[in-house]
Amino acid sequence: MKHISLILLILFTVSCKKEAQTTDSTTETIITKTDTVYIETYKGEPIKTAKELKAELTEKGYQTFDYVDEKTQDTILMQQYFIAFLKSGPIRSQNEEEAAKLQEAHLAHLGRMYEEGYADISGPFGDNGDIRGITIYNVPTLKIADSLANMDPMVKAGRLEIEIHPWWAAKGFPLR
């Protein structure tokens, strides 16, 4: 009788549980089951349809377009981003200590741009050429991207110059 009561208690607990979550660790997608309704999320945010996302982006002033992939027949939503090329500036005569302080402030600026959602990715080039690195800004206009890029302490000091171009990428496609 004791075993039957324990089994019934376990079955009752499992059957009354309102939510069950499964996690796919490669994409961090969580599917939450509430009774029979599934809500797919990515990092805790509901995944929107392309139509919903396009409407949201358009409302915020972003440029978008979509197309149908011939192979998969999926609708792909493209968004305009702004890629900033950080080029060697005319004033590179700072001593080692000044350059190190500028580099620290530069990295703090880029970190802030990422944390506040203005920049999606940044990084230096490895060839020591004239173009030192890039930042991809996820903002609605060239004017905003230019303003944010020119707030960089390295740019203000003349050690770097900015060249910005509009750049299109598919929403939700990760780097590989």
Rank of each mutant, 00 (worst) to 15 (best):
K101D: 09
S122N: 07
I7Q: 09
F82H: 05
T34R: 11
S5E: 14
H165Q: 14
S25D: 10
Y118A: 10
G111Q: 13
Q79V: 02
T13M: 12
T36E: 14
S25H: 10
E97L: 07
V37I: 15
T23R: 08
G172T: 03
I83G: 04
V14R: 01
Q73S: 15
H3Y: 13
A55N: 02
K54V: 02
W167V: 02
T64S: 01
I30E: 11
I4N: 12
I136S: 09
L148T: 04
Q79W: 00
I164Q: 08
S25P: 10
P124K: 02
T49G: 02
P166I: 00
E45K: 02
V14S: 05
R112V: 04
Q103I: 00
Y67F: 10
E52D: 15
K171D: 00
I136G: 08
A100E: 12
A55P: 01
T22H: 07
A170H: 03
R92Q: 14
R132I: 14
F65Y: 15
K48V: 07
A100D: 08
M113L: 13
S93G: 10
V37L: 14
A50P: 06
D130I: 08
D127K: 01
K33E: 10
V155D: 11
E28L: 09
D35R: 11
F12L: 15
F125C: 05
K48R: 06
L6S: 12
F82M: 09
I164H: 04
M113I: 03
T49L: 02
D130P: 06
I39H: 06
D66S: 11
L6R: 14
T26M: 11
W168A: 01
I136K: 09
G117N: 12
E115I: 09
S147P: 04
E56W: 05
D127Q: 05
V155A: 15
I47Y: 05
L8R: 08
I162Y: 00
V37P: 03
Y81P: 01
I7S: 11
P46L: 14
K18N: 08
S88D: 08
T75S: 04
T34H: 14
P90M: 13
I134C: 03
L11R: 00
Q94L: 04
Q103F: 10
Y42P: 01
Y118S: 12
G111A: 13
L160C: 06
Y81R: 01
S93N: 15
M1V: 11
K54D: 06
T58H: 04
K71Y: 09
A105G: 13
D152F: 03
Y62M: 06
K48M: 12
L142K: 06
K2Y: 12
A105M: 11
Y137F: 14
L11Q: 05
K143R: 12
S93H: 09
E52F: 08
M1R: 06
G117H: 09
M151T: 09
T141S: 15
T41P: 07
F173W: 12
H106G: 01
L86W: 09
Q94V: 00
P174M: 11
T135V: 15
K101T: 07
S15Q: 11
H109M: 05
G129E: 06
G123T: 01
V139C: 05
E163W: 04
K101N: 13
L148K: 15
M1C: 10
